[in-house]
Design a protein around this nucleic acid. Structure first.
Length: 352
DNA sequence: AATCCGGGGAT
DNA sequence: ATCCCAGGATT
């Protein structure tokens, strides 16, 4: 195969010399490979690494992860985003421990059946943990292949997905699928970067279409643009004289599902109407007039997600009354909170 | 085939 | 401000 001489071989040689010393590369334990891959879905290595360390320290085996509570797993996942990953991780750990005797399926079909494991992750575990010939296609691979071969099929279409998967599979060095897959991704992460790729140091530059045609800034091609929805959140933060507050678990089809937050009033517009808030406070906490109400933040907090822009205000309600459905402030450390909520708590409790 | 789901770093 | 990250599930 000529392609291997100009692609796989130089690429893998480059990888063996330049690979980063990442914690999950110290082990072939499928549990650790799986854990690292779930954590790294749509997540930068720099951000995911500390979570990998936390999880492996807390849960050395899949049995220990399975024995944890969902609340504990979500709390440990707090701040990483895409929280359904944490619930799928936990559910799969229980499935593995209880039904599969703690043993990972050693083939692609078995792996891809696991919750939270799609084509990429199944291929990654199969190739890295078991040396099975399945090509991984992540964002790095799209970039490397589209540039090297000059492919302008949009990567966010079903045709693009099929085309790149097929090409990646053809190219795969079946003698060392784990190294091959990691080599492509490592090149995409370190050399063939989205902006200003380091073509001068690239082992594939001689035969790279985009480099030779000076088109690295045109590839890969993406079709869709994400539009951002603005939302306005008013949080009612109870602070009783006994050190209690009230939180609720988020439900329904929305962001932060299964995480906790203070009672929320969402408005369609940026209205911080004091009287309207007051009415909601009386309703929510069933209070008379024995309370104080004031806005905690002077500037509205803007929190940006990929599809939403959240404008958040925190309304402080102080009272001496004894209310039901409360939680000690101290106990918030056992509840997973969205990042902007945790930020608020840290700021508020830091002041008081 | 589209859309949704987080947070953060690089540019 | 924009892009995009070792993607997957749902509609």
């Amino acid at each position: 195969m000529r392609e291997k001489d100009i692609f796989s071989k130089p690429l893998i040689l480059w990888y063996l010399k330049n690979r980063r010393d990442l914690p999950w590369r110290k082990s072939r334990d499928p549990y650790r490979i799986w854990l690292s891959e779930i954590i790294l879905q749509q997540t930068r290595i720099a951000q995911g690494t500390e979570y990998y360390e936390k999880f492996t320290t807390e849960f050395d085996t899949v049995f220990e992860l399975a024995a944890a509570s969902e609340e504990q797993v979500l709390k440990l996942w707090q701040g990483l985003g895409y929280y359904s990953r944490a619930r799928n991780l936990h559910e799969t750990a229980r499935h593995l421990a209880e039904r599969l005797n703690g043993k990972f399926p050693e083939n692609y079909p078995g792996l891809v059946q696991l919750k939270g494991v799609g084509d990429y992750t199944a291929s990654a575990i199969a190739s890295i943990a078991f040396e099975l010939p399945h090509a991984t296609v992540d964002g790095n691979v799209y970039r490397v292949l589209s540039r090297f071969f000059g492919i302008s099929t949009p990567i966010d279409t079903s045709q693009g997905i099929r085309e790149f998967k097929s090409l990646a599979q053809e190219l795969l060095d079946t003698d060392q699928p784990g190294n091959h897959n990691q080599a492509v991704m490592e090149l995409g992460a370190l050399v063939c970067t989205p902006k200003r790729p380091k073509c001068e140091t690239c082992p594939l530059q001689e035969h790279c279409y985009a480099h030779l045609a000076k088109q690295t800034d045109l590839l890969p091609v993406k079709k869709g643009k994400t539009k951002v929805r603005k939302r306005y959140f008013n949080y009612l933060v109870l602070d009783s004289s006994e050190g209690l507050t009230r939180i609720k678990k988020r439900t329904g089809r929305d962001i932060w599902k299964h995480l906790y937050e203070f009672p929320l009033i969402e408005s369609s517009e940026s209205v911080a109407d004091f009287e309207s808030i007051e009415n909601h406070v009386v309703q929510e906490f069933d209070l008379g007039k024995n309370y104080g109400l004031k806005k905690f933040n002077s500037e509205t907090v803007v929190h940006k997600l990929s599809h939403q822009e959240l404008h958040m205000d925190f309304w402080l309600i102080r009272t001496d009354e004894k209310l039901a459905q409360t939680t000690a402030w101290k106990d918030l450390e056992n509840h997973a909170l969205p990042v902007p909520l945790q930020n608020f708590v840290d700021k508020y409790k830091g002041d008081s």
